[in-house]
C-alpha cells in the first residue's frame, strides 16, 4: 500500500535507519519530496479549507486545525488513515527502531508573520517520534520558520521549510529541545505536525 503514496527511493528503510541513528544532536531524518506529488498537492489544497483557530501561550503563537482525525474531508481522511496505518507505523519502526504503535496526534498549522514555537522538548511520556510535514512553497532562509534543534543551549541544526519534506525525530524528555523560529515575512508556513505515540 505504501508504494501508492511514498516515492520509491524512500521505500528501502535500511539506509534511512543508518542515517537516522547517525544524525546529531539527536536522531532525526529529513526526507525531501517524500509523498507522491499529486497526492500531497491534493491534501494541501483540502487542508486550507479546514477551520484554523489562532492559539497562543507563553510558548507559541500560530493557527491550528482540530486533530485531523476529526476531519470530514475524504482526502484528509485518506492522509490520516495512511499515517495511522499499521503499515506506516511499521515502516517508521524500521527506520527509527522506536516502537510507536499507539495513537497518533496530527494537526495542520499555519505560522504567519511573527508566529513561532519557542524551545521545548515535547515532554509527554507517550510521545516517541515527532514529525513535521512541510507544505509551504517558495520559502527562503530569509522568511525563516525553520525547525531548529538545540544542543547545549545552542542551535546546531536548522531545517528550512520546503514543500513535501517530512522531518521525523526521536523525542527524549530533557534532551530533544527544538523550536520553530519566528516567521519574518508575509508568507505562510504551512505544515502537518504531531507525534507517533507509544501504546
Amino acid at each position: 500500500m505504501l508504494n501508492n503514496y511514498i516515492v520509491n527511493k524512500y521505500l528501502n528503510t535500511r539506509k534511512l535507519n543508518l542515517k537516522f541513528i547517525k544524525n546529531k544532536p539527536f536522531s532525526y531524518l529529513v526526507l525531501e519530496g517524500f509523498f507522491k506529488d499529486n497526492f500531497i498537492s491534493d491534501v494541501t489544497s483540502e487542508l486550507l479549507n479546514e477551520k484554523f483557530v489562532f492559539q497562543e501561550s507563553d510558548l507559541f503563537s500560530f493557527k491550528q486545525t482540530n486533530d485531523l482525525l476529526l476531519s470530514k474531508n475524504d482526502k484528509i481522511k485518506e492522509f490520516y488513515n495512511l499515517i495511522n496505518s499499521k503499515e506506516f507505523k511499521e515502516y517508521l519502526f524500521n527506520i527509527t527502531g522506536i516502537k510507536a504503535f499507539g495513537k497518533i496526534d496530527s494537526s495542520c498549522f499555519i505560522y504567519s508573520n511573527g508566529d513561532y514555537l519557542l524551545p521545548h522538548d515535547d515532554r509527554l511520556e507517550k510521545r516517541k517520534i515527532a514529525y513535521v510535514l512541510n507544505l509551504s512553497k517558495n520559502f527562503t532562509k530569509l522568511d525563516c520558520g525553520s525547525l531548529d534543534f538545540f544542543s547545549a543551549n545552542k542551535i546546531v541544526k536548522s531545517i528550512y521549510p520546503k514543500f513535501n519534506t517530512l522531518t521525523i525525530f526521536k523525542v527524549i524528555t530533557g534532551k530533544t529541545f527544538h523550536q520553530v523560529s519566528e516567521v519574518l515575512s508575509d508568507k505562510k508556513r504551512i505544515s502537518i505536525a504531531g507525534w507517533f505515540n507509544d501504546k
Partner: peptide
C-alpha cells in the same frame, strides 16, 4: 508568570 515573546515587529 511570563513575559510574552517579542516579535520582529
Amino acid at each position: 508568570y511570563f513575559v510574552k515573546y517579542i516579535n520582529n515587529k
